[in-house]
Design a protein around this nucleic acid. Structure first.
Lengths: 391, 391
DNA sequence: AATTCTTTTTAAAATATTTTAAAAAGAATA
DNA sequence: TATTCTTTTTAAAATATTTTAAAAAGAATT
């Protein structure tokens, strides 16, 4: 028998996956969701218990009959190594099947741009992190990495950063670390996180805005992450907002990113302060846009008028772009996530205002705007999901 | 046994469906596509032959072994009633399983706007058409209707036309005609037709532009028609193109529809001619925008400079809007279909020009632009597909 | 408190589907 | 031309999955 028990094992993996996303499920819950017969599910769940993958978690209240037994994954049965990169730094965290950190988060500078040793450096970091964690490698199901750039997830190539001359990043890391590795775009992973464990939980058609140094868009269509024909879907930041606006890094003018990203806002703040605008931002080191950007968020949250004005302006522009997105996609939900989610409450009013102005009312009515609760954690959570989706 | 043979029958229906979309398939083709075992497929195909649904269509060339036998549906085993409506007229055609008309196409005026008897009139028309066709009702699998408007396909309600006070159009027609009836948006059906039997055959991520009195968009995402959270996805015609442009019927300014649809072009033509522009259009009845619109297409095809200028202008605007669409969706294919597909060759140059200007090169490179070959037939074809998808 | 009704879980029987093996038909090659 | 190799089709055996039935556990009702 070449594929002895293969089909049964596949189904067991499906059960494990399902329990990862929806813990505390009864056999009939599982049966309903996986569209497999109860009796089969029951048998396999018992096998999983015997194997130490699953444990019983007490009873749920009954609606007039025998109380269902609830099953969950044994959190320490397996671990996932999650990695969240942005252009400047990298966070690493080993988590268990319940999403709890099994070792401290490691945060270190790892500039992606013009850094030929970034990849080898990353591999070394990951190896030593695992060694220090005290968890044996065999218990780590996989490594999930979210990174900015245009990414081919199948081949494991990043066309924008970590240049390898067409070589597969995932193949390299899998070999170096000896644990199966997966990569994906940061905004896509944030969208996954919001739809599986965040405010868009169980929603089917969700657009997740990743508000950060750029403006990313992760799209969930009919419950699945949509990546487009070449994996470049959601290049929302470079749609044209206004004829003849600011020059963008992409070479075009008036892109959303060059008008409303955190970097664009920081640039405007520096100009404004140099022109004598009154603001608490004056005391910030104006040489680092990164520092200015973070300071704007803090200032806005503590009521600084100039900062709020800058963010409101950005919000209105984001809203205008969202109006177009809503017309095309008719999403049920839009989530504001990423670094900038902290100030989403301030952005929301001008965003809503622009949407009202530029959208057909019937479409506005069908779309809810939500603010992320996962915040900065979203990308790490998404990286874990990436691994479990491939389990 | 309550569901005796249900599962087997389901699979048989899947085989029939598959043969509808891909005729002349061998058992191994079917096995591969349906992901069911060859031996099972072989048995069921033989049953379908015995039932008179399927027939053998000779052999395909072999690649070094026994020649595969090819199977097709018996074209006259079942029939489909297809209906294509636009705001002014309705086409009806009974087709067989090979897509061949089994009765002549019926084309009649049926204005949708402010016409309370449109629905009863439609039902009468359909009934008498069936009676005149000579095909017995029991052989008609279903009625598929494509119509403009915001449509809820599950409930069978059109929110824009054929007002029934929230009653289901499909329930009414199914009862009146005694044949299961389905409705869908015209642009959605055109997209279906292009992806199943048109130039976008087998492509997975396709945006189909329905160039007509309005500008519609049908979206195929990962091989499936995407309708959005409330069924209103693809409301492409009302995205804003230019700040402060022409007033649109939707109440906003500068919408794509009010700037570049066939109706908008006709309006501009009338203005131009009244201002003394030289053109063969002068001899057209300028009171009917419909007549002017059609005349512009003819004039442009025979080289009239004014008509070509008008269409080029519209094309550039469509291209600018498409640039945004490409950034968001990263589609593999864009198809120009519908009434205006006749002049797509003239529109293509300015469309491409605008896309080049407003798109990131890497995204342009991944998207091919195609011109429909189904043309005006697409909507009827799509209506047949709608029925077979529900078979 | 006893009975009836629900729901979950388990086991046995029935059915569906896949694997394996073998036969049939033909292409490629020596 | 005979042999070997492929591929398709069919049949038999093995496996997977669902149905059916029954037991277990508890809620609701009389």
């Amino acid at each position: 028998m070449i594929n002895e028990k293969n089909i049964k094992d596949e189904l067991k993996k499906l059960i494990v996956k399902h329990l990862y996303f929806f813990s505390e499920q009864s056999c009939s819950d599982l049966s309903g969701h996986l569209k497999k017969n109860l009796s089969l599910i029951s048998k396999l769940v018992n096998e999983l218990i015997a194997e130490g993958m699953v444990s019983v978690k007490g009873h749920a209240p009954s609606s007039g009959g025998r109380k269902p037994q609830l099953y969950s994954l044994k959190a320490d049965a397996l671990y996932i190594l999650t990695v969240a990169m942005d252009q400047l730094s990298t966070r690493i965290c080993l988590v268990d099947l319940a999403g709890k950190p099994a070792a401290e988060i490691d945060m270190n500078e790892l500039p992606l741009q013009c850094n030929p040793i970034a990849l080898t450096s990353l591999a070394e970091h990951l190896n030593s992190y695992i060694n220090n964690s005290g968890i044996e490698k065999s218990k780590i199901v996989g490594i999930g990495i979210g990174m900015p750039g245009l990414i081919n997830i199948k081949e494991g190539i990043n066309f924008t950063f970590l240049e390898t001359g067409g070589q597969s990043l995932t193949a390299y890391l899998t070999k170096q670390i000896n644990v199966k590795t997966y990569i994906d775009n940061d905004s896509s992973l944030i969208a996954l996180a919001e739809q599986r464990f965040g405010v868009a939980r169980t929603k089917q058609d969700v657009m997740v805005m990743n508000l950060g140094w750029g403006i990313g868009l992760g799209m969930i269509i009919e419950g699945q992450l949509y990546r487009g024909h070449n994996g470049f879907a959601g290049e929302f930041s470079h749609i044209q907002l206004s004829e003849g606006g600011e020059l963008c890094s992409c070479g075009k003018q008036g892109c959303l990113e060059s008008e409303a990203s955190m970097l664009a806002v920081a640039r405007k703040a520096v100009t404004g302060i140099n022109e004598g605008r009154i603001s608490s931002l004056k005391s910030t080191n104006l040489d680092s846009y990164e520092a200015v950007g973070n300071a704007i968020l803090d200032a806005a949250l503590s009521g600084d008028q100039f900062a709020i004005e800058l963010l409101s302006d950005a919000g209105y522009k984001i809203g205008k772009a969202l109006a177009t997105l809503i017309h095309i996609m008719n999403p049920g939900t839009i989530v504001f996530s990423g670094r900038g989610a902290r100030v989403a409450r301030i952005l929301l009013a001008p965003i809503q205002q622009a949407i009202n102005k530029y959208c057909i009312p019937r479409l506005v009515a069908g779309t809810e705007l939500l603010i992320s609760e996962l915040g900065f954690e979203a990308q790490l959570t998404g990286a874990a999901i990436l691994v479990m989706e491939n389990y």
